[in-house]
């Protein structure tokens, strides 16, 4: 973990209630896709934990949904604004058990960390299948970006306005020859994935956090090996750890 200042170089609307922010600053604390950062927003006591979508040696990209007053304030920030951020938080995804044809399953705000994961898997010569789940057409973001890096993308929408009508699990049912899964999204989606497949995999959890670095015990999840902190021991857990 590192605490440092970042300068906003881009902050724009990608889809309904969904923004992309690119920050200039140190990215050396990020070592695995699926890690997150905790962003201090002026006027709010606690930081906002937000997953990292991608990074370069001098920039960090995050995609976030406006879900409350804090993220609404973030959405209104202008280029040049300086943000104090704790970076390199959490464990991130482990690429080693992926096999040749892993499936990456993201729902809504759970999609962004899968982008860096897909990039790294492709770099290793894997052929990731990507399932992106949204509520409707106006919420779709990053489909083109996933396609551009060479991922095989399937889109689902709950209202059927684009792609497969239904949920990510409906797309998953139609796929064959998968070797492993990586998932990020709302808890009901994660549980439905586990109910619907025998594949082994990793799931990134979300919980209300106090500190984001393991001190306050605010975001505990009960696992096969006892109480774990989503922020420090996770956010990524192996399926067997969760027993789902």
């Amino acid at each position: 973990m590192k605490k440092s200042d970042y300068t906003i170089i881009e902050n724009r609307l990608l889809a309904r209630n969904t923004y992309m922010m690119v920050l200039r600053g140190d990215s050396t604390q990020f070592t695995a896709p699926g890690q997150f950062m905790n962003v201090s927003v002026e006027g709010f006591y606690l930081r906002r934990p937000i997953s990292v979508c991608d990074w370069s040696p001098s920039t960090v990209t995050m995609i976030y949904k406006t879900v409350g007053r804090g993220t609404e304030k973030m959405a209104a920030l202008k280029e040049g604004t300086v943000l104090n951020i704790l970076t390199g938080l959490g464990n991130g995804y482990d690429l080693s058990p992926s096999g040749d044809r892993p499936v990456l399953i993201g729902g809504g705000a759970g999609i962004p960390p899968l982008f860096r994961l897909a990039k790294e898997l492709i770099r290793e010569g894997k052929k990731p299948q990507v399932i992106l789940g949204y509520n409707s057409k106006d919420e779709i973001f990053f489909e083109d970006e996933f396609i551009a890096i060479g991922a095989d993308v399937t889109v689902t929408t709950a209202d059927g306005s684009v792609g497969i009508k239904g949920f990510v699990t409906d797309a998953l049912k139609q796929m064959e020859g998968l070797t492993y899964f990586y998932a990020c999204g709302p808890i009901p989606m994660l549980k439905a994935i586990c109910t619907g497949t025998d594949l082994d995999g990793q799931l990134s959890l979300e919980e209300r956090m106090g500190c984001g670095f393991g001190a306050c015990m605010g975001c505990t999840v009960i696992t096969a090996s006892g109480a774990k902190r989503v922020c420090k021991d996770g956010p990524v857990f192996r399926r067997e750890e969760l027993g789902w």
Partner: peptide, 12 residues
């Protein structure tokens, strides 16, 4: 193991 989540909320 403590209480059920959510265990954290923000305030002014």
């Amino acid at each position: 193991t403590g209480n059920q989540a959510p265990r954290i909320a923000e305030t002014e």
